[in-house]
Structures are given as C-alpha cells and as structure tokens.
C-alpha cells in the first residue's frame, strides 16, 4: 500500500475542492441566473473537459504550463520552480479538469431557486451577497455539495492528466491512481488490489452521498 500516494491524492482532491468551491458558487450562480450573448459558448467550454480525452487535455495543459509558455514562465518567475511536474501544476490542471463536475451541479442547484424567491429577497432589502447567503445557498446547497463530492472523487481517480502534467514523481505527483498502475507494472497485484479496493470504497461512498443529497434536494423543492 502506497500511503504517500493516497495522502497525496487526498491532498490534491482537497485543494481542488477548496479552489473550485467559490468558482462553482459564483460561476454556477451566474450561469443559472443570467442570460447573455455567448452563454452557450461558456457552457460548452465548461463541459469540454467532460468529453475531451484526459490525455488530450493533459497534453494541452503540459504545453500551456511548460517552461516555454507564458504561464510557465510567469510561474517560474514568481515561485522559482517549474509548474509542470509539480504538485502546484497538478492542482491547476485538476481545477481546470474538474470544472464541469463542480460547476454543473451547482448551476442546477441555483436554477432550482425560483426567480420570484430571489426577487423577494431583494424586495426584503437583502443586498446580493446577503441574499446569496441567507436565501440562495440554503436552497441550492445540495447541488453545490454534490459538485464538490463528485470533484473530490474524480480527482482521486484521475490518471491521464496527472500522468501527462505531473509525471509520477513519488511524494510530489504520484497519486494513488498512478501508483496502482505502477504496482501492476511491477507485478505487485496484491498492492494494486489493496489500493483499488480503497478507491472503490471511496467511490461507493461518493455515490451514496450524492444520491442522498439529490433525493433531499428533490424533497425540499417539491
């Protein structure tokens, strides 16, 4: 059992969730409540990672984060190290790759808040952020939380992008999914089985939690 790899994966998933939470809330809310020119394009871009092969996205991110790229140079200049093949690079890739998993459920959650209820909040004198906290989030949270749970689970299992952007540096970028692959390559089937079982358990819990939340959301709004 590669405990450092599991620890790294949990770390990566945690950071991704923390960084995506505000993005999901504000982007999801914005997409749910506003109609604007080019909304379809934005929605398509958010969904893109869902249909794009992870290796393809990983390749583009590798190029975009590389030492020759503006982003890579900016990062190098600011932090003195490369963005690719680092934990920070993995977090950045993970955030981008999980946009659809975090934003879509949050958007659905906010869409379920009736327009008149939102307007009533303003008519009660609530400023937009107050209305978000007191009226919208209490109604939309199952969607937001579902997005976070999905994101967390998805990060744990991601393979292609991690390999492309991060490589498999132990303690830095070797996540549990990569580690399973390494174990199998080394004919350590017992080690692979152990880690696979852990990931399976985490996935099952994720599905259970997600189902409970969506059922609860359905009850609240009926």
């Amino acid at each position: 059992m590669d405990w450092p790899a599991l620890w790294l994966s949990l770390h990566l998933a945690g950071w991704t969730v923390v960084l995506l939470l505000p993005v999901a809330v504000f982007l999801g809310r914005f997409m749910a409540f506003h109609r604007f020119a080019g909304k379809g394009v934005v929605e398509a871009l958010v969904i893109l990672p869902l249909v794009l092969p992870p290796t393809v996205l990983g390749f583009y991110l590798l190029v975009a984060f590389g030492a020759e790229s503006p982003v890579g140079q900016l990062w190098q200049g600011a932090f003195g190290g490369p963005l690719v093949f680092s934990f920070e690079g993995l977090v950045a890739a993970s955030v981008l790759f999980n946009l659809p998993f975090a934003v879509q459920p949050a958007q659905r959650g906010f869409e379920a808040v009736p327009r008149e209820v939102r307007e009533a909040a303003a008519c009660c004198g609530m400023a937009p952020l107050t209305a978000l906290w007191r009226v919208e989030l209490p109604l939309a949270w199952p969607g937001v939380l579902t997005g976070m749970v999905l994101t967390f689970a998805h990060v744990l299992g991601e393979f292609g992008i991690v390999l492309m952007v991060g490589g498999a540096i132990p303690g830095e970028t070797r996540t549990v999914a990569i580690s399973i692959y390494d174990r199998v390559q080394a004919f350590d089937m017992a080690g692979a089985a152990q880690m696979s079982a852990v990931l399976l358990a985490i996935s099952l819990v994720t599905i259970a939690v997600t189902f409970r939340l969506s059922a609860r959301a359905g009850r609240r709004l009926s």
């Binding site: 009736p114 008149e116 209820v117 307007e119 009533a120 008519c123 609240r220 709004l221």
Partner: peptide
C-alpha cells in the same frame, strides 16, 4: 412586494 406565487423562503 406580495408576489403572485407568494415567493416565501421555503427553508
């Protein structure tokens, strides 16, 4: 404002 659908805060 009193809305057509009441628009009470359900929670």
């Amino acid at each position: 404002v009193v809305f057509q659908s009441y628009a009470l805060f359900p929670q």
